[in-house]
Design a protein around this nucleic acid. Structure first.
Lengths: 228, 228
DNA sequence: ACCTGAACACCGTTCAAGT
DNA sequence: ACCTGAACACCGTTCAAGT
């Protein structure tokens, strides 16, 4: 039987790239737990078994998806100052997480030796080396920055809501759920955020700038970088 | 048929607590992907279906496991200075990850309104409030610190090895795998770490102290805290 | 080279039936 | 109240057979 063609879609031959893109679209729409080989195959108009012509298994699929979205993060260009470059890629990563809420969890367990991930690491490290850091210190700075960038997203997403409510609603729910007097400090903080919403961007920038300040102090003297 | 009693084990009635402890032991030994309801039940001498008398499902099981290991993290005591308290809990968390390598991934997706998680948040926030931070700032500091602590573990574990090799082996493998000239900065950093191993503890402390320094600067004047 | 159909060895979960 | 046995609706993956 010939492949079923889905209406409106121009015919395209199935390829690894197209499998990965379909998987990303599926997970964007229905969440990571809805990703099954059968459903993914259905989207491509083939059977589940046929996917194994393009990916070696589900693990390879997830690896490929992680690498595909890493390519969406803006990489530092050569002309940019290192601090501006690091800030930009952090913001670009956060925009990526807004488009693909599942990406942070996938990337930081599966950033392995895939093409885009290697390019990402090379460009970030290159920027830090050119700024004057030693290779070992550049590696440490990279690890520390990415720990914070991906870690913040994961912590933030615990507090985020699936419904349309904002952070004041979450805070109010927490405050309501605590029996009076049990967790006074938590209650006090929840009450504060129920009144004035938590600014996620400012909260992120606070920690990021602290780390960037510290990295800047490691630079050899005579290479001052102005802060924005 | 009566419950089969495993040899050497004293008879204990199955309870939620015992289910959770058995799950932690199973995952410690065989990894998170080896956790199935059937195998877990087998360890307890019961059938898989019986687990549903103690947990509402696999999701509840994972939630309970996360909460159980959170309880292992040392909490700040009242007498301690805030900075020492934050440093201690960070180190305690890292020791937890050494005992339970799967814990970081579980905790930072599942720290929800469970008893130990609430107590953890309350004690950390209480310490920061007593140090003089406003509730909103204390919440932000908590989020930033935990982003880094859990994020670092996840990044670190990507680079870690399952076999007995150390970080110089990983670095050498990366260096060998890159085709010459393709990723010069990455190659340079890998070469540096192949020669001198990456110090994970010092690398962690670097970022942590930067964040603590920044939080300290937010404190009202006249409450100086000495650095260790 | 790529796809299908059917199967295999698993999963989590439900539920009537037992004690 | 807690457990069993059996079933259900799924999974990822394999493989001979087709084109």
């Amino acid at each position: 039987m010939p492949r079923r063609k889905r209406e409106g879609e121009p015919f395209e031959t199935v390829s690894r790239e197209r499998v990965l893109r379909a998987a990303v679209a599926l997970v964007d729409e229905r969440g990571i737990e809805a990703l099954t080989m059968r459903d993914l195959a259905g989207r491509l108009g083939i059977e589940a078994a046929s996917l194994y012509n393009h990916v070696s298994g589900k693990d390879d699929l997830l690896l490929g998806m992680a690498d595909l979205v890493i390519a969406e993060i803006d990489l530092p260009s050569e002309g940019m100052g290192w601090r501006e470059a690091m800030r930009r890629r952090a913001m670009s990563a956060r925009q990526l997480f807004a488009r693909h809420p599942w990406a942070a969890a996938l990337i930081d367990t599966r950033m392995q030796a895939q093409p885009s991930g290697l390019a990402y690491a090379d460009r970030v490290l290159g920027t830090l080396l050119r700024a004057g850091l030693s290779p070992a210190v550049a590696g440490n700075a990279f690890l520390v920055l990415d720990s914070y960038i991906y870690g913040y997203e994961r912590q933030r997403s615990i507090l985020a809501r699936e419904d349309g409510g904002d952070s004041t609603d979450t805070a109010q729910e927490v405050a309501d759920a605590i029996e009076p007097g049990a967790f006074p400090a938590l209650m006090q903080v929840a009450a504060a955020y129920a009144e004035e919403p938590f600014d996620e961007d400012a909260g992120f920038a606070f920690g990021l700038d602290l780390l960037l300040d510290g990295i800047e102090r490691l630079l050899p003297a005579g290479q001052p970088q102005k802060r924005p």
